[in-house]
Simulated assay, not measured.
Amino acid sequence: MQQKRIFQKVALILLFGVLSMVYVVLAWHTKTILVGDDRIFHIERLEEAYQDINKGHFISMISTYSFGKVGQAINTYYPWGNLLFYVPIRMLLKNPITAYYSYLVLEQFLGLVLAYIFGHRLMKRKDAAIVFAILLRFSVYIMFNDFGRADIGESWAFVFVPLVFLGMYNILKEVYVKGAICLVLGLTAEMYCHLLTTVFTIGLLLVVYLLTFIHQQEKKKVLVTIISSSGMFLLATLAITVPIIRQLGVRTVIPNTQFFTEKEISFNTLVSLSFSNTLGQGLPNVGLAILLIALGGVIGLKNSNFWETYAYILGVVLLLCSTLLFPWYLFKNTPIAHIQFMWRLLPFATFFLSLYGASKICTVYTWEKDSFKLIILNLSLV
């Protein structure tokens, strides 16, 4: 029995490894780093980190190797944690293109593993957990972030979102220590990669907490654990927050709020792009699979449990709120406008809809005891 479990774990790791290579193989085959909205910005940040550490220094707040050597304080406001994954790869492989795509392979592999762990803990089924990981990590928006936008910081931050919700789930299930550890580690890792993704995640954690408040048996213990976890998170992220606080009095170019009124997308556009599985610059969408779950998932709500129901509702609400169906123009003169693109909500919509879809798919089709069918299912999802 023990040997069988070890074999299954090794097979799962190999599957995720192969899928991670599949994820980048077409782009890697071009032997170029494909054009993306933020490609130059993030490549220069990656190389800056490599040069700094290779010369015996830690990552500086001031960029002196890249960005035309003009000393921009890029890393004061843009977290640098994800750059640390790139540096040893770059040192080992030397070739910057090979290092870049290997970096994406590592990102996708970690994303698949963490998504699987959360899915397995929540759904108690290996097949559903694998389907969830595939639906999430091979969704069009995740690929859009990696290739269409080349927004490496946001991409890496979302890798840790399942770990955050695993922590919240454990706390709500009264597994306090493990839950607090996962919650703090996940949010801290997010914060060291991308600030806005962390803010969105915290907001959704608050929503989940409020939705489950009535059903919590140990309300006081849950609240105390969340508050103590928040304190540990604040301490763990001082390396990011202190430099920002110190720069508050310095005149800084803030994000262009004009994008908030010009670059949002209509619901019709989102549906059209998703139906065609469009992947390209400036074309955010969720892809056909997630869209079909959103449109057809209402059929399965009648036979859904508590978390399935709320996963579907949250997914659909976030999907709608990522478009102009929500009157975002009312907030054009508020700090919310600095978010720039409200379609940043799409990966979270994808997260919740992938959970719901995986559960329903594996309720209709029982794959767990048929490994061959399970492999075929996963390959078909890719």
Rank of each mutant, 00 (worst) to 15 (best):
Q2I: 14
Q2K: 14
R5Y: 02
A11E: 13
L15D: 06
F16V: 04
M21H: 10
V24Q: 08
V24L: 11
L26T: 15
W28F: 15
T30K: 08
T32R: 14
V35W: 13
E47P: 00
K55R: 09
G56S: 07
F67Q: 05
K69V: 11
Q72V: 15
T76L: 13
Y77V: 12
Y77E: 11
W80M: 03
G81M: 05
G81Y: 02
G81W: 01
M91E: 10
L92T: 05
L93Q: 10
N95F: 08
S102R: 06
Y103R: 02
L106V: 13
L110R: 07
Y116D: 03
F118N: 05
S139E: 10
V140R: 03
Y141P: 01
M143L: 12
N145A: 14
I152D: 03
E154F: 05
W156K: 05
V159T: 03
V164C: 02
F165P: 03
F165I: 10
G167Y: 00
I171N: 03
L183F: 15
G186Y: 06
G186L: 08
L187Y: 09
C193A: 11
L196T: 12
V199H: 02
I202M: 09
K221L: 12
K221V: 10
K221D: 13
S229I: 04
L238K: 05
G249K: 11
P255M: 07
T257S: 06
E264V: 12
V271T: 00
S276N: 14
L288S: 08
S304Q: 10
W307S: 04
A311S: 10
V317C: 01
V317Q: 09
V317W: 09
L319K: 08
P335D: 05
H338K: 09
Q340F: 03
R344M: 15
R344S: 06
L345E: 00
L345P: 02
L353R: 15
A358N: 13
C362W: 01
T366D: 15
E368G: 04
D370L: 13
I376S: 12
V382F: 14
